[in-house]
Structure formats: structure tokens, C-alpha cells
Simulated scan of single mutants.
Amino acid sequence: MIARGVRDKRVFVRADLNVPLRGGAITDDTRVRASLPTLQRLMRAGARVIVASHLGRPKGQRKPEYSLRPVAPRLAELLGTGVSFGEDCIGPVAARAIAELGPGQAILLENLRFHAGEEDDDPDFAKALAELADCYVNDAFGTAHRAHASTAGITRHLDCVAAGELLESELEHLRVVREPVRPLLVILGGAKVSDKLAVLEALAPHADVLAIGGAMAYTFLAARGEPVGASLVEPDRIEDARRVALAAEKSGRRLLLPTDHVVAEKIADGAASRVVSAIPDGWMGVDIGPETAKRYAAEAQQARTLFWNGPMGVFEIAAFARGTAEVARAAAASAATSVVGGGDSLAAINQLGLGDRITHLSTGGGASLEYVQGLELPGVAALER
């Protein structure tokens, strides 16, 4: 559908090229690679492809460290053809650069978020984007939960709109979590209950088994009255944790928490650590323990649908990353339809070389979590008007 009748037309592709940069070099090009199928299809069809994305949070200011310029040569290398770079994403500068494109050629525009109108879904900014194109394709699932000018507002000014292959693939694979073959195992990690409260509330009565790791597990343990030492706990979320646990219980679901822990006196490379079943005073939980990792792995073997988002410990420190690695191996070994999302979870899968054993690696982050909750995504709704 996205490649039908687009020869010589200007097709604006909202991609997600929000890649990590260090010293002006891309350190992980996963998102660039994920954008290739849609771009290749349009270029083969003879479209003049305009690629637009955000990078980081420049907050409406032109900050050189957030420029998309370093992404253009990598995108060109992966596409096997030249990709020009536009110094702006609207106005005469962008229009002139786009006018020089021939059929089957592509340009990458400068960071959309250099303009405050992007995140504000400003009508004038959305119109300025639309004036550059004849058709619009949204392939940025990672920002589909945001009503921004390039994901929502632009569609009000163009009649020819469509979903890209990555966005379609994300929706198709995440739908299996909303409508699972049971039993459904959901493994959630991360630092704070507050960051994932909505998804916890939605999935506690939905998942057959909800296994919790990461620092947010200590708020749940504190809610049970178990010792948590100096672990990260959100006191104002203890009642929320109790409510989530009760929702699972009332629905006949199982909520699993760590029963052993890797603890340390401080979070630092080389810090002394040990495995305990009860966290002592002055020590903090930094990872799930080996027995907990085995329990979660056993659940993965029984599951027919598996969704994992978030690390089990302080993944940035190798000594505290073993629980996350064990969950990654368990997800890969499971016969379940598996969907993995979240930066640290994906990093663990990729570091271990297990990507080809996971059914779907979701680039969506927050969008993935909102979609599996059953929420409407503005970027998707805008295509269905």
C-alpha cells in the first residue's frame, strides 16, 4: 500500500532515528536498521523520500549535539545509496533540498525537535511540514503514543497517508499480548513503580503470570512488609503496589516477586556483593538472585505468549546484570511467541546474540507499553481518520 502510485511523488516518512551518539558517532544503529524496509520499498517504487525524525530532547533549540547529521552517512551506507542532508526540516532551506531529489532518492532532514512546534503539535509547524510532501508515511512506532506535529498534526493537511512497515509490524506483534494464546507471562522490570504503574494496573488482571524485577520489586516487597534494607523504595507508591497485587489475586492471576536478591552496599563497579533471601539493613538490592532467575525461567518454559520489558537489576554494571541476562536466555529458549521491548532488555538480547530467537524485538519503548494496555496511540489514530 505505501508504495502504490508514489513514483516521483514527495513522500514524507516519519522515522524513529533517535539513536545513541557518543562523540558524534552512532553507538547502536538498531533503529536505523529498523527503518530500512519502508525506505527501500518507497525508493524502489520511485518515490522522492523525505526522512524526518527527532533525536534526543533539545527542547525547541538548535543544539549541535542533537543534530541528525551523523545519521545520514550511516543511513546511506545501509541503504547502499547516497542520502543527502537537509539543514532544516521546514521552510525554504528544506524545500530547496527536496526539490533536488530525483525519483528513488532520499534526504534526511534536520532534527524535528529543533522547533518547539513539533512537540506542541503546533498547527503552523504541522502545515509547514505538510507543504514539503505529497504523501505521508508514519513508520515511527516509538513516538506513536505522542500527539506531535510530525505524528498527528501533519495528517490533517495531507490526503495520502499510510502506516510504514515497521509500524504495521509492531502493531501486529504487540496485538498478541493484548489478545494472547494463554498462558501469558509478562516480565516487567525497571527502577520505579511510578514509571510503569499504568501498565502494571492493566496487566495484573490480564496476564496469567506477572513477574516483577528491577528496583520496583522492592516497593512491592515493602508493601508486603518484607525487609528491603537500603533498596530503592517509593513510599508514596506502596498502596499502589498493594492495589496491583490485589487486582492480580482477585482475577486469579499470579504475581511473582524476587525471593532472593543480589545485594551491595553501594551501586558501583567493584562493589562487594552477595546473595541473600532477606535484605539486611544498610544493603540494597541490585539484581534478582539466582533462584528467582530460575523461577522466572521456569515460567517462561510454560508460557505460550511472553512479553518482557525492563531490566531485572542495575544492568549498566556487569556484576549486577546476571539476572537480566538469565531472563534474556529464558525468553530466547521459550517456545512461546515472545515480544521483548525496552532499551536494557533489547541490549541484553543483542549482547547475548539472541535476537533471532525472539519472535519480535519492539523498538517502541513507551508506545509498546501504552499499546499493550489497550490505549489509543495518537500517531496510529491519525492514520485511521
Results as ranks from 00 to 15, higher is better:
315 F>M: 13
341 G>Q: 14
365 G>C: 05
59 K>F: 07
222 A>M: 14
107 I>F: 04
105 Q>T: 10
369 L>C: 05
152 A>N: 11
63 K>Q: 14
213 G>S: 04
318 A>H: 13
139 D>K: 00
164 G>P: 13
159 D>Y: 06
219 T>K: 08
147 A>L: 08
258 P>S: 04
42 L>G: 02
376 E>D: 09
194 S>P: 14
252 G>T: 09
51 V>R: 09
22 R>V: 14
48 R>I: 06
350 N>V: 03
370 E>I: 00
129 L>T: 04
213 G>L: 06
377 L>V: 04
301 Q>A: 15
230 A>E: 07
171 L>M: 03
124 D>C: 07
25 A>S: 15
114 F>Y: 15
196 K>F: 09
193 V>E: 11
150 S>T: 05
96 R>C: 04
268 A>K: 11
177 V>D: 02
359 T>W: 06
364 G>W: 04
41 R>Y: 10
3 A>I: 08
8 D>N: 15
170 E>L: 11
87 E>P: 03
37 P>Y: 08
256 L>W: 00
201 E>P: 00
310 G>P: 01
104 G>D: 05
196 K>E: 09
310 G>I: 00
312 M>D: 04
64 P>V: 02
364 G>F: 11
3 A>Y: 10
108 L>P: 08
29 D>N: 03
148 H>S: 03
362 S>P: 10
320 F>H: 12
111 N>K: 10
233 V>L: 08
317 I>S: 13
220 F>H: 12
371 Y>P: 01
18 N>C: 07
167 L>C: 02
276 V>H: 14
208 D>Y: 01
